[in-house]
């Protein structure tokens, strides 16, 4: 009995040692040489592996930073300047500060603003819907409302507002990784400067149809009239393909355009509530109140 136990122990021990030696040999033979700084950089990364930087994941980004030898072309949108400073410290490199960005939904085609012309009955996917037809409203360019952006967001920063049928970006959670921008088949979502005190002005429409057609499809559409461009003292607004665009690098947030827009397509967010003004010059339609669009603190003037 005892001998059996002893033999078992001996046999197992010998086997264990043998295998350990084999493992050691294999490990040394197939060892992969890697720059230890990649690990260090990876440690300071957010670790979301969202792909917002353009690389497959945080490690790939770290590798690229180490190999490139500078940080000019690499930026982690999720971690922002803080993380980039840490990365720069690890590698002993310089980093340029970037203004924080945020995803902005450029469509205000709420259920009230944009009457439905048919009912979509396929799978709930904007990509499928966009490939099939122009959408269930008269607007060719607007939000399809199936929430591909919501599904793409890894940070839970986008949700669909059931009242408007439009996505809403949570300013706190959005990291500007750009996943939603890539997911949107209508290219409605844009990454814009977050702005001082989160204040921004943007055109909430991408409809490229002529004014009358755009207006017919949606009462909150940009009709490309160009009044905003004339009003802008900083040349920040251009009207191309019947739709205005505000260059956020030139915009100084004076909000002159907001007052000019006849359809209320230009939105300003996070500005303090203005002193009571006279009623809007032109009420769009009785059924189209200034809908909450962008965020909880969103305000809109006509």
């Amino acid at each position: 009995m005892t001998t059996t136990i002893i033999w078992t122990i001996v046999a197992i021990t010998v086997l264990g040692v043998l295998l350990a030696v084999v493992l050691y040999l294999v490990a040394t033979k197939f060892k992969v040489e890697e720059d230890p700084r990649i690990d260090e950089v990876e440690k300071v990364m957010p670790g979301a592996n969202c792909g917002g930087c353009g690389f497959a994941g945080c490690r790939a980004f770290a590798q690229s930073c180490v190999e490139a030898g500078n940080l000019d072309n690499n930026f982690c949108p999720v971690g922002g300047n803080d993380v980039m400073k840490k990365v720069a410290a690890v590698l002993g490199l310089e980093v340029k500060e970037k203004a924080p960005m945020i995803a902005v939904v450029r469509c205000n085609g709420t259920c009230a603003n944009r009457p439905r012309t048919n009912d979509y009955d396929g799978v709930r996917s904007c990509k499928v819907k966009a490939a099939l037809y122009s959408g269930d409203t008269g607007c060719l360019h607007g939000c399809l409302g199936c929430g591909d952006c919501v599904a793409a967001c890894q940070f839970g920063a986008i949700s669909m507002d059931p009242a408007t049928g439009l996505p809403v970006v949570d300013e706190e959670k959005c990291t500007a990784c750009g996943a939603c921008v890539r997911a949107c088949p209508k290219r409605i979502i844009e990454l814009r400067n977050k702005g001082p005190k989160n204040r921004r002005v943007f055109v909430s429409c991408v409809n490229m149809e002529k004014g009358a057609a755009a207006r017919k499809a949606c009462s909150a559409a940009c009709i490309g009239c160009g009044k905003c461009a004339k009003a802008c003292p900083f040349d920040a607004i251009t009207v191309e393909h019947n739709v205005a665009y505000i260059d956020f690098n030139k915009c100084r947030l004076c909000r002159k355009c907001v007052a000019e827009c006849p359809t209320g397509a230009i939105h300003d967010v996070n500005f303090p509530t203005p002193a009571p003004k006279p009623e809007p010059k032109e009420a769009p339609k009785p059924a189209a109140p200034a809908a909450e669009v962008k965020s909880t603190t969103d305000k809109k003037e006509e």
């Binding site: 396929g122 799978v123 996917s125 990509k127 499928v128 490939a131």
Partner: peptide, 12 residues
């Protein structure tokens, strides 16, 4: 299951 809806896009 909306098989073809999904597969059609993947095929493209």
């Amino acid at each position: 299951i909306p098989l073809l809806d999904i597969i059609r896009i993947a095929k493209g």
